[in-house]
Computed example of a mutant assay.
Amino acid sequence: MHIPATLVRGGTSKCWLFSQVNVPVERDRLEHLLIGAYGGDDPVQLDGVGGATPTTSKAAVVGVSPQSGVDIDYLFAQVGIGTGTVEWASNCGNCATGVALYAVAKGLVPITGDETRLVLRNTNSGAILEAVVDTAGGVVHEFGERTVPGTRAGGVGVGLTFLAPAGRTTGALLPTGLAAQELPIAGTPTPHGLPVTPWVTLADAGAPVVLIDAVRAGLTGTESRDEIRSLVPWLRSVRHAAAPLMGLADPGAPLGDAVPKVGLVGPAAPYTSTLGERIEPADHDVAVRMLSMNSPHPAIGLTSAVAVAAAGLLKGSVVADAAANADGGATLRIGTPAGVVPVRCTEATPDGPGRVTVQRAARILCDAEIFVPRAQLPRAAA
C-alpha cells in the first residue's frame, strides 16, 4: 500500500506529516504503518524513510481541530530506531513548527496577510501552541532566510508560543513541590565517579524534564556530544529514577525513554558549537546538554527548552542557580551544542509562565507517497 505524506524540516528536526484522512484512526494500526514506512525494525532504517536518528525519525498526523478556538490538531510519534516500536508519550516543538507551515501551505487555515496566526493542539499532551507563520505578500514561501542554531540552512520564519505550558502532563510545574532535590538512583557510580544522588530539578512545562546540576555532578554542562554519549547509561538511570516521582510511571512498571526528558544544566562557560562557532559566557545564561531518547540531542528540543526556561523562573532551581549571573530578564539564553537558543517567558503567574515563545524556521522538503510493505501491517490494514 502507499500513503501520501509530506516531509518538513522544523527547526533542527525532520518530520513526515500525514493527513489524518489518509491513515488509520486506531493507534495499533497507525503504529504498524509507521514502523513499516520508516523501517523501524532496522537500526539504520535502510528500508524505509526514517533518518536513523531521534531527530529524523519523527512523524505527526495532522488535521483540522474540532475544538473551538483551535485550528489544527496533531498527534506526534517518535518512531523507534531498530526497536519496532513507537513512543506516543511526548510532544515535539520542532515538528509543531513544521506542522504550522504545513497547515498554511495545504490550505487548512487561511492566509491573513504578511503573517498568518494559528492555534495548534498537541493531542498527545493536550498542549496548546500559537504559531505565527511568515506569509509576506500574502503567500506561502517555499524558502526563507530565517536560521536557527544547528543548521546554516534558511527557512520560513515561524514564531512558536506555548500557552500556559506548566503541568500539562503531571498537573504541576513542580510535580514533587520542590524547586530542587536529591534524586537517589539505582546502582552504583559509573567509572566516571558520577553521583548516585544527583541534585536535580523535576519540572513539567512543555515536557516533563529532569534537569541535573552539572557542577555538583562533577561536570560542566558544556560537554561535547561524544562526552554526553559516554554518560547515557547514567543519564538513563536518572530519567528512570525520576519518572515514578513525577507520576510518569508506576513503581516497578517498565520504563520508557521518551519522558521525562533528561539533561545537564551548568553555568555559562566558553565552548565551541558543532558548527565551529565560539560561544562565550557573555553570549548565554546557562549551558544545557539534553538527551533525545537515548542519544545526545544535537541542539535542544523545544519542549525541553520551554521547561528549562520555566524552571529558570523558580528561585532555588538548578536552572536559576546556574543562571545566577544572568540579568534577570524575561529571555533566557540557553547554550546548546549547536549554539544559543533564546526563550522568552511572559505573563508569569505562581503556576508558571502564561506564554513561552521561541523563534524558529521551517521548510517543506517534499510531497511524496510512501510505499509500506503489506507484511508489516495488521490484517485489517492490509
Rank of each mutant, 00 (worst) to 15 (best):
D257T: 15
V306E: 00
L313E: 09
P353L: 05
G256Q: 05
P267H: 07
G316A: 12
R225M: 15
M246I: 12
G247N: 05
D285E: 05
A241T: 03
D213I: 08
A322R: 04
V259N: 08
G266P: 01
A324C: 08
A249F: 10
T272D: 08
A320G: 09
A338Y: 00
Y271G: 12
D250R: 11
A299T: 06
A217E: 06
L219V: 12
V215S: 10
T349F: 00
V343P: 00
V265P: 05
H297N: 04
L231Q: 09
T331A: 07
G256T: 07
P267F: 06
D321C: 15
A253K: 05
V232R: 03
I228T: 02
S292T: 14
T336F: 09
T331R: 01
A323V: 09
A287C: 13
A241M: 07
D283S: 12
V318L: 10
V319W: 02
V232T: 08
L235R: 02
V306C: 05
D250W: 05
S230A: 15
A323M: 09
T274E: 12
V288H: 01
A268H: 00
L313Y: 03
V286F: 04
A242T: 10
A268C: 06
V262P: 00
G218R: 02
T349R: 01
L302I: 08
R355L: 11
D226F: 12
A320N: 12
V238G: 05
V343D: 02
A309P: 00
G276I: 04
T272K: 08
T331V: 11
S295N: 13
R355P: 04
R344Y: 01
T303C: 06
S273I: 07
G276N: 10
A253F: 03
P260A: 13
H284M: 14
M246L: 14
A322M: 07
D351M: 05
A241E: 04
V306L: 02
D285G: 01
L255R: 13
G256R: 02
T331M: 03
D351F: 03
A326Q: 10
A305C: 12
